[in-house]
Nucleic acid binder design. Structure first.
Length: 104
DNA sequence: AAACTGACTAATA
DNA sequence: CTATTAGCCAGTT
């Protein structure tokens, strides 16, 4: 751990409950456009009892990232649903509705 | 230091 | 809508 992800975590923590943000969005808001991958990389190194709502971070399609921890996808989905985020039949989130900083 | 890897994105077909 | 390609840049090996 380098602590270089502090910036990313800070932005992720800023995501309001019941909303989701994309990796690219987090990268941009953290002052690092184009570092979408790095954002995901940061999430990967998060401990279990972290204060960072990593579950609110999804890919550009509004889906749970596939490269996430196998099975961890379900956990993320449960957590989001618990916050009020609805998934459609395809397992995707309507970014236009739950996307952070999107239209309602 | 060089090569490899990766919770991604956007563009094109 | 899906599939493929290229670009991105920092962390690991």
């Amino acid at each position: 751990m380098t602590g270089s992800y502090a910036r990313i975590y800070a932005v992720v923590r800023k995501v309001p409950r019941g909303k989701v943000a994309t990796y690219g969005q987090i990268a941009r808001l953290s002052g690092r456009p184009g570092h979408a991958r790095q954002v995901g990389y940061a999430m990967y190194g998060l401990p279990a009892g972290t204060n960072v709502p990593w579950q609110r971070i999804v890919n550009a399609k509004g889906e749970i990232s596939r490269r996430s921890r196998g099975g961890g996808e379900l956990t993320q989905r449960i957590l989001l649903e618990r916050e009020g985020v609805r998934f459609n039949a395809r397992g995707r989130i309507d970014l236009g509705r739950y996307g952070w900083g999107r239209a309602t």
